[in-house]
Design a protein around this nucleic acid. Sequence first.
DNA 1: TTCTCTGTTGTATACGTATACAATAGATTA
DNA 2: TAATCTATTGTATACGTATACAACAGAGAA
Lengths: 334, 334
Amino acid sequence: MNQKELAKIAGVSSATISRVINDDPNVKPETKEYVREIIKKYDYVANINARNLRASSSNTVGFLISNFNNPFFIKIYQGIESICRKHGYIVIIGITNERVEEQEKAIDLFLSYQVSGIIGSFVDVDNKILNKLQRLQKNVISLDREFDILDFDTIVIDNEYGGIEQVNYLHSLGHKKIAVIYGKLDSPGKERLNGFEKGMANNGLKSKEEYKICGNYNEPDAYYATIKLLQLKDPPTAIITHNNLMCIGAYKALKDLKINIPDNVSLIGFDNFEFADYLEPGITLIDRPINQMGEMAGEMLFDRLENKYIGETRRIVLPVKLKINKSCNFLTTQ
Amino acid sequence: MNQKELAKIAGVSSATISRVINDDPNVKPETKEYVREIIKKYDYVANINARNLRASSSNTVGFLISNFNNPFFIKIYQGIESICRKHGYIVIIGITNERVEEQEKAIDLFLSYQVSGIIGSFVDVDNKILNKLQRLQKNVISLDREFDILDFDTIVIDNEYGGIEQVNYLHSLGHKKIAVIYGKLDSPGKERLNGFEKGMANNGLKSKEEYKICGNYNEPDAYYATIKLLQLKDPPTAIITHNNLMCIGAYKALKDLKINIPDNVSLIGFDNFEFADYLEPGITLIDRPINQMGEMAGEMLFDRLENKYIGETRRIVLPVKLKINKSCNFLTTQ
DNA sequence: TTCTCTGTTGTATACGTATACAATAGATTA
DNA sequence: TAATCTATTGTATACGTATACAACAGAGAA
C-alpha cells in the first residue's frame, strides 16, 4: 500500500495524502479528517526510504561504540536515544569492536543512511576517516576519546586527575606497593596511566614495571593480571584498575583466590558499575557523571543540527570524583 | 556524490558504477578494477534509502524491547545483532517501555523501514497490531512472551516449571512462610505465578495474600516490597523473586536493613545476572539459557527469510534450571 | 563476405515520497 | 457585471538506485 493506491481508494490525489500526513495547513479540515480515517482504516505507513530519499536526509543519528559489553555504552545509548526520540530522530548503532576496519564499515553505513550526525567513541582516526566525517560538517561528537586530528565537539572526563586521585588515596592509606591494571592505550587509557605515573612521582613512590599490567579493558584479562600480580615474589598491597570491567575482573580473582579485600589487598576502581556498592566490600572508585554524558552529547549534537549553536568546536571535560567505600584499607604492618 | 556524478568523473555510465558496486559478473574485469579505484578515491557510498526504495526491501530487522534497563535485552540484542551482521542485515531497535502506544509507534517505524522481519518482546497484541504484523508473513518471532492471538514462531522458557522449582527448593529446606515478589502479569509473569501457586499447593503450603506483592519487574518496587514484607507482624522466612531486577531490589533492601541472607531470610531469584555469583552470599536462582535466546531467534528468523524453513509455526520452550548458591539456608527453629 | 553470437556498456525507467507549479471553483471587490 | 483574490486540489517531477532492454563491437562460423 502506497500513497497512490491509497489516493485511489480515497478518491483524492496522492498529493493530498502526503499533505495530510505532513499536516499541511493548506488542506480543508474535512478532507484532512476524512483522509486520516482512510489512513487509519488501511493502517497506511509511509515508506521511510522514499521519504528520506526525497528529503535527501533521514532524521537519523549514528551512534558508534565498541560493543555493549561495557554497561557504560548502554547508559550512554539510553541518554542519546531519549534525546533523539524527543527530536523525532532515530538512532542507528554501529559497532567497532575496537577495530578500525569495523569502524570504517560502521561509518560507511552511517553515511549510506544519510545520518544527520554521529556521536562516537572512535577507535582511531586517520585522514581517510576524517574525510568521511567531514561530510557531516560539524555534526559529529567525539565521546570519551580525543584525537589531535579531529576538530569536532568533544566530551571527555578528567582521566588524568582520576588516575592521580587513585594513587593519592592509596598513598594516604600508607600503601607503597601499588600495582595498576591499565587498559588499551587509547586516549583515556594513556591519560589514566599518565595520572598514575604522576601520582606515584608526586608522592615519591617508585613505579615498578612488574606492577603494571595491561588488562585490555576487559574482565578476563584483568582477572589473570590480578592472579599474576599476586604470584609475584613481592606482591603489591593495593591494586588500581583503570575501568569498571577490569575492576570486576580483579575483584573476582581476589574472591576466587580467597584473598580478603581490603585487609590483604586494597582494590580501587575507575568508573562506577551497577553493583559496586553491593559487593562485599563495596568498591572504592573514581566516579564519573556517566548519566549526563549521553544526554549531553545528544543535546550538543542537536544544538548543531538545529543551528542553536554555530561556532567553534567545543571541548567539555567532565569532572570525576573519588567515591570512597570499603575496598581500601590502611596498610597494616606486615 | 551519487552514481551519476561519479559516472561522469569515471567516464562510464551510472549503470556500470551500480554493477561494480553489486559485483555484477557482466563487467569487464579491467573496468571493474578501474571503477573500484574511483569509488575508493572519492569515498563513494551508495545511498541506502534509494537502494532500499528501488529494491522494495531493506535488509533490516526490527528488534522490539521494553528498554535496556534489563540486561536481559542487551544479551539478546548482542545475539541478534551478530546473526544479522553475518547475513548482512541491520538491526533497528524499537522501544516500548511496556506501553502499547509506544509499541504501536515502534512497529509503525519498523514497517516504514520495510523491515524484513521483527523479533519482539511484545507488550500486548490486539487485532490492530496483529494486522500490521501479518504484513511480514511469518517473519515475526515472539520472544519471551506468548499471545493466543499470535500465530508466529515463539521462543519462551519454561516459566511455570521455574516457579514451581523455586518453591520446591525452599520447601526442601524447611521453609513454610514463603513470600513472592512477582512481576507484571504478562505471559511469563502469569506462568511464574501459576508455578508458585502450584508449587505451594503441591507441597501442602498455604499461599498467603499478604506474602504476595507485585514488584513490577523493577528494582525499586521490589526494594519497597521487600521492606513491606519484613514489616509484617509475621514476616516470611524466605522470599522468592520473579526476575533479576526484583531479586536485586530485594537483595539491596535486605542488605540495607542489615538482615542476614540466608540466616534470617532466604532469597531466591529468577533469571541470572552478572554479579549473582559475586554478591555475598551468591544468589540461588532459576537460570535460563539467555545467551542462546538471541542467536536462536535470529537464526529462526533467517531460516524463514531465506526459505530454509517453510512451514508450521514453531514454538520453542527452553528449559530452566535451579542454580544453587548460598542465598538460601535451612530454616532454623525460631 | 555475411551472419550470428557473445561480451560489454549505455539508456531509460520504476521504486514512493514531497512539493513546485498549475488549475479550479468560489468568494470578494470594484 | 467583470476582475481579482483565496482556498483547495491535482499534475508533474526529482531524489539515487538497480535493472530490463537496447546497442554495439568484435569474434567466430558459414
